[in-house]
Design a protein around this nucleic acid. Sequence first.
DNA 1: CAGTGGTCTAGACCACGAA
DNA 2: TCGTGGTCTAGACCACTGG
Lengths: 231, 231
Amino acid sequence: MNAVPLHERIRTDIRERILSGALAPGARLPSEAELMAQYGCARMTVNKALSTLRDGGLLVRRRRAGTFVADRGTESMVMDIPDFAADLALSDRVYGYRLIARKIREGPDGSMLHLEGLHLSDGRPFAHEDRHINVAAVPEAGDVDFTETPPGTWLLRHIPWSEAEHRIGATGAIGDVAAYLGVAEGAACLTLERQTWRGGESITKVRQTFLAGTYELVGRFGADTADRPNA
Amino acid sequence: MNAVPLHERIRTDIRERILSGALAPGARLPSEAELMAQYGCARMTVNKALSTLRDGGLLVRRRRAGTFVADRGTESMVMDIPDFAADLALSDRVYGYRLIARKIREGPDGSMLHLEGLHLSDGRPFAHEDRHINVAAVPEAGDVDFTETPPGTWLLRHIPWSEAEHRIGATGAIGDVAAYLGVAEGAACLTLERQTWRGGESITKVRQTFLAGTYELVGRFGADTADRPNA
DNA sequence: CAGTGGTCTAGACCACGAA
DNA sequence: TCGTGGTCTAGACCACTGG
């Protein structure tokens, strides 16, 4: 009864010994040849288990030296990017979008479509968005009606990107943004800046300002994400 | 001259066709047998390339049906956890930590070590921290002098964990925290809550409150992290 | 030098699930 | 049913690098 593949069994064996502390950072693991003997399998099977753990960041492998438990100095986590419509639907609220301003602006990198809008939950604004879209990279954007379609959603569904960067911070609401969100100036807000590229060419850059308390970013790092068993 | 392994060449070939939009989400890829013929290699080599892309989330593979480009509906990013000392050192500032309060509190989950402290940059506080450590899970914590050693750093180096959860939000500074940080009540702050477990047992739970503008979380998702070529 | 991991092969059997 | 991916084998050669 081998419902679980052997390479996965080897992998979880070793991972558990690391996470439990039995194998401390820097400790050396048996070589592939030794593990072959231990588990009575071919080298490729052992290699798959160890390579997976290496890719997950738990192991470091060096030729001639061997396989070692990685230092866990800098940790990282996987964090989901907010998808407003889907997230609000989960809590029985209605998502909406309202365009505030739309203009074309000529910049050093060519013409940029500038969109300013509000994200609404049950009709009440909870986030302000300031977005620039590179018209040269996304010519179709000029034809889309963004008055009620959130540009983020449209871009996500239509425009592939190869790189993205996110910055998360906090700020006090300022001027127009405070007014649009219906709060006093200086009210605490969460900011999310997101920029995407495709092949070195910038596609879009957006700054979203959330009313404090209306949105939270959650990230998990667990035994199930340390490596990737399956989708 | 095969400096780049064949399986990696296949992988980047396909990845680029996806990220450039040539292969749209839902599109079907050739079967492994067909790719074997195309690249003139063994099946394991093709399989490694495709499996890697599947684990990276770019592909979905189903028996009998074939291999398809995954929908990119919900995006995710990899984000580093702040390591204050290292980060400040990069910008030529001096990191410091100051303990405010330390007490043992008996709770429903056993006794918890409660630590309250400030993180300092060049002697000025920029973050407040409120931490609980499960004494049952980390008995050594009782013997550590946390007056100048930040407990997060100590825990990270000494206590392995298997799961972690992070929540990022914004809030206005309240009462004591505002006073400690030297700002007015209601001043915008970034909050980071982090909880770690080992085998279902909670190890530590911390809430950090950053002065707005003093800290930013940055996450990247790029061609280099979409799959994992190497460490 | 020699042990280690990195890669690759040419097969094989099986589980799954769409046709 | 039968094409597909998932897994595994028992070899092989090579690149690297520590002892």
